[in-house]
Structures are given as C-alpha cells and as structure tokens.
C-alpha cells in the first residue's frame, strides 16, 4: 500500500452530487460502511456513498501519521498499520465493515477511550466537502497545528450533517508491547483508583473486566497488586448506548443488573452499551434521562424507538446552516 504521496482524490463526483441535490431541493444521506445506517429505517433520501473513496494516500510511519480516503474500511487500516507495529486506537468493531469516515462522523468510541482518548483526539487533518459543495482542508500532517479554526473537531461527530468527509489524516502510536484482559470481584471504583491508567475498565452483567496495556513486567505487577485474574474480552452489546456523567454510571449499571438487561459500562468514561427488547430500552432511556444522560438507539429492528434526537442549540444550528444552508444533508438521528 505505497500509493504515491502526491496522489489526489477526485472529488468532482461528490461536488456534482451535492449540486444536483441542491438544484432538485432533495436530500442526501452520506453512507460509509452502512454499519449504523443498515439498522435504521429506510429514508427517501438519495444515498451518497463513499464506497469508491478508498485507499491510503500517504503513510509515514516515521512521522506517526497516515492519510486515507474516508471510505477505507477501518479493519483494512488496522491491518496495514499492524504490519508497522502501529495503531490508531479508534477501534474497529470487528466484522461490521465500518469505514474511517463513518468512525469520524459518528465519533462513537469503545472502552479503550478511558486511556486512549476519544476519536476526535486522533484526527489531525480532514478534507471535507461541505453541504454547499465547497472543498475545505483543515489541520495538517503535523501533530500540532493551530492555524485557523479547528474544523477537524467540527467534522468529527457531525453525523454527516456538515459535509462529506473525504480524506482523513490520523495520528498513530506504537502498538502497546503487551495487552491483556482481566477480571476481578473488586468494586469498579476501587479498581480504577488503584491501577495506574488502565486501558479499559468495563462493568458488565458478567462481572468487571479490566484491560491493561503496558510493559509486560508492569502488567504482571499491576495485576498482582489489585488481584486481577486473566480473562477473555467481554462481549459488548450493540443495540443501544447510553451516555451519563461518569460519576452516575454505577447507578445505571446497577439498574441494568436489577432489570436483567445485558450491559457493558465503560467505567471512568460514562458510556454504557445495552441490549434488550423495546420495553427494556424505553425503560433504559428513562433511567438514563433521570441520571441526566441520554440513550442512543442504534438498532431500529430492535425497537420502535427513534434514535434519540440530539437537542439542537441555536449556535449549532447557525454553524450547520453556514455549511449546509439548504439542509440537503440528512441527519439520520432525526428522520424527517
């Protein structure tokens, strides 16, 4: 995968599709791997797919950066990086075919965000085609860049509502020398306090799981100090995810335990993945709301609940209108 560094992406088809939608006053939904979209009810909107937008543009292992087209499957990226002993810990969900662009657009991160940070922390540069068809690059290939407003952050987590993410430059790091999952009977809060920066602490209906990523001797010493027992990785529910203040997570997980709903709460983070029938999810949504949080339902097949519509503040509305004045980009979380 040593495509020339100078290789550019032909964005004309995307610009044309956006222009056509503008003329027709229609709506578009951007589609990456479809791992989220496929589980949502179909819409009338025309699909703008990034399936053709694949491949590595420039990989510089010595600079710890890689630039790829947004339609590149996350798994392909991870496999390539692994051959160089590197990773970008934005966590592919195995077998789901999700794309780098989709990862950025949804900004949903897994349990390793406790130590590795969120998706947004790994994005150095984005090439975006705005809803009104302007091609914009923000950020750079260097790890620090404060030249102008940080539109990389704006694109990350935008759920396809400000433009099409076309190219992405990601920050990389060496794969940790050792990584292993453990389990323990100790309370989650104690484990989090006693371990030095664990990679993940996950509270599930099958017990508490801990992931350590350190020098092998440190992994052994930490595990012994806290009484961790080797385990396989926990299985993560995929139907819905709740987000609460990390200080309220234990209240949500004990509620799920009592309600006999499969759950995986990211301790220290505040995200909780849940499975369950429609009634259970309605109850989970109510419980999350009581705790000041919210629930995002990602599988329409499992429930008649809509995805949680994000509350829109006037400032976000204005920013969105500045980039997509005709609102041709559909927010899949708020079907019209």
């Amino acid at each position: 995968m040593s495509d020339a560094a100078t290789m550019t992406t032909d964005l004309a088809p995307i610009v044309d599709t956006l222009a056509a939608a503008q003329r027709a006053r229609g709506q578009l939904v951007i589609r990456g791997g479809g791992s989220v979209l496929e589980r949502l009810p179909p819409t009338d909107a025309e699909v703008l797919s990034t399936a053709e937008l694949t491949g590595v543009i420039d990989h510089r292992p010595e600079d710890l950066v890689i630039t790829v087209r947004a339609g590149t499957p996350v798994e392909e990226l991870s496999a390539l990086l692994a051959t160089h002993g590197q990773e970008c810990p934005i966590e592919p969900l195995a077998g789901h075919g999700s794309t780098v662009g989709g990862r950025l657009a949804t900004a949903l991160a897994g349990p390793r965000q406790l130590q590795a940070g969120r998706v947004r922390d790994w994005v150095l540069r984005v090439r975006l085609v705005t809803g009104d068809g302007r091609v914009v690059t923000a950020g750079g290939v260097t790890v620090k860049d404060v030249t102008g407003y940080d539109l990389c952050r704006l694109a990350t987590g935008s759920w396809g509502t400000v433009g099409v993410i076309a190219e992405v430059t990601l920050k990389l790091r060496p794969i940790p020398t050792t990584s292993a999952w453990f389990t323990t009977d100790r309370p989650a809060s104690r484990v989090l306090a006693e371990l030095y920066r664990p990679a993940a602490v996950v509270s599930t209906d099958e017990g508490l799981f801990v992931r350590l990523e350190e020098h092998p001797d440190d992994v052994v010493a930490q595990a012994a100090a806290v009484g961790l027992v080797a385990a396989v990785a926990p299985t993560l529910p995929t139907t819905a995810r709740a987000a609460v203040d990390p200080s309220r997570l234990a209240e949500l997980t004990s509620w799920a335990q009592a309600a006999a709903i499969p759950y995986a709460g990211f301790v220290g983070v505040g995200v909780c993945l849940l499975d369950g029938d429609p009634d259970a999810l309605v109850a989970a949504g109510a419980r999350a709301a009581e705790l000041g949080g919210r629930l995002l339902v990602l599988d329409a097949g499992a429930t008649t609940l809509p995805m949680r519509p994000p509350p829109e503040d006037p400032m976000s509305e204005r920013v969105r209108a500045a980039l997509d004045p005709q609102q041709i980009l559909l927010d899949v979380r708020r079907p019209r």
Partner: peptide, 23 residues
C-alpha cells in the same frame, strides 16, 4: 453563556467545544 459540550462522554450536537478551543 453557552456550555459547549457538557459532562456527558458523548457529544449530542456539533463539537463547538473543539472549535472554541484555539479561538
């Protein structure tokens, strides 16, 4: 006063927090 991003670990709207940093 606008609270840009709150105490929740996942953003609901656009990451205007991120834009305001470096503003």
């Amino acid at each position: 006063v606008h609270l840009l991003d709150g105490r929740l670990p996942e953003q609901a709207g656009l990451d205007l927090r991120g834009v305001s940093v470096g503003g």
